[in-house]
Deep mutational scan, measured.
Amino acid sequence: MTYKAILNGKTLKGETTTEAVDAATAEKVFKQYANDNGVDGEWTYDDATKTFTVTE
């Protein structure tokens, strides 16, 4: 399944996708990606669109 992350960081804005077996696995991948890029904020998840959003 393909999951998407939308990054609304102070220094990084954009989107990325990952293939994962479930939302929990995708969330770990996206949170690591955000952390590696200095983005730390509030996370939300929309199951209907399989989209995570982080906003700083």
Results as ranks from 00 to 15, higher is better:
Gln32Ile: 09
Lys10Met: 12
Asp22His: 04
Phe30Asp: 00
Thr49Ala: 06
Ala24Arg: 09
Lys50Leu: 12
Asp36Val: 08
Thr49Lys: 06
Asp46Trp: 03
Ile6Gln: 06
Glu19Arg: 13
Tyr45Ala: 01
Phe30Lys: 00
Gly38Pro: 00
Ala23Val: 12
Phe30Asn: 00
Glu27Pro: 00
Asn8Ala: 07
Asp22Gln: 02
Asp40Ile: 14
Asp46His: 06
Thr16Tyr: 15
Glu56Phe: 08
Thr25Val: 07
Thr16Asn: 04
Thr53Gly: 02
Ala20Pro: 01
Ala23Asp: 05
Tyr33Glu: 03
Gly14Tyr: 14
Trp43Thr: 01
Gly14Glu: 11
Lys28Ile: 12
Glu42Asp: 11
Gly14Ala: 14
Thr18Ala: 08
Thr16Ser: 08
Ile6Tyr: 07
Leu12Met: 14
Ala26Trp: 00
Val54Asp: 01
Lys13Tyr: 12
Glu19Cys: 14
Val21Arg: 12
Val29Asn: 07
Glu15Asp: 05
Asn35Cys: 14
Asp36Tyr: 08
Ala48Tyr: 10
Ile6His: 05
Val21Leu: 12
Thr49Met: 06
Ala34Asp: 01
Gly41His: 03
Glu56Lys: 02
Ala26Pro: 02
Lys10Thr: 12
Lys10Pro: 10
Met1Pro: 08
Asn8Asp: 10
Thr2Trp: 13
Glu15Lys: 06
Val39Lys: 00
Thr55Lys: 07
Met1His: 15
Thr53Glu: 07
Thr2Leu: 13
Asp36Gly: 06
Thr17Leu: 09
Thr53Asn: 06
Asp22Ala: 03
Asp40Trp: 14
Thr53Leu: 07
Asp36Ser: 09
Lys10Ser: 11
Thr49Asp: 05
Asp46Cys: 10
Thr51Asp: 00
Val29Ser: 05
Asp40Thr: 13
Thr55Tyr: 08
Asn8Glu: 07
Val39His: 04
Val21Ser: 12
Tyr33Met: 07
Thr11Tyr: 14
Ala48Met: 11
Glu56Asn: 05
Ile6Thr: 05
Ala26Tyr: 00
Asp36His: 07
Phe52Ile: 00
Thr11Cys: 14
Asp40Val: 14
Ala5Asp: 04
Val21Asp: 11
Thr44Val: 11
Gly9Asn: 04
Thr11Val: 11
Thr49Gly: 04
Asn8Trp: 12
Leu12Glu: 06
Trp43Pro: 01
Val29Gly: 03
Met1Lys: 12
Thr49Trp: 04
Thr51Val: 06
Gly41Asp: 02
Asp40Phe: 15
Thr25Leu: 06
Ala5Lys: 00
Lys10Cys: 12
Asp22Glu: 04
Phe52Asn: 00
Gly38Trp: 08
Gly38Asn: 09
Thr17Tyr: 14
Gly9Asp: 03
Asn37Met: 15
Thr44Pro: 00
Lys31Asp: 02
Lys10Ala: 12
Lys50Ile: 02
Lys4His: 12
Glu42Cys: 11
Thr25Ala: 14
Gly9Pro: 03
Gly9Ile: 07
Leu12Asp: 05
Glu27Thr: 04
Ala48Cys: 11
Glu56Cys: 07
Tyr33Asn: 02
Tyr3Gln: 03
Leu12Val: 13
Asp36Gln: 11
Thr44Leu: 07
Glu27Cys: 14
Lys28Leu: 12
Thr25Cys: 08
Tyr45Phe: 06
Thr53Ser: 05
Asp22Pro: 00
Trp43Phe: 05
Gly41Thr: 02
Gly38Ile: 04
Tyr3Thr: 01
Thr18Ser: 04
Gly38Thr: 03
Glu19Gly: 05
Tyr3Leu: 02
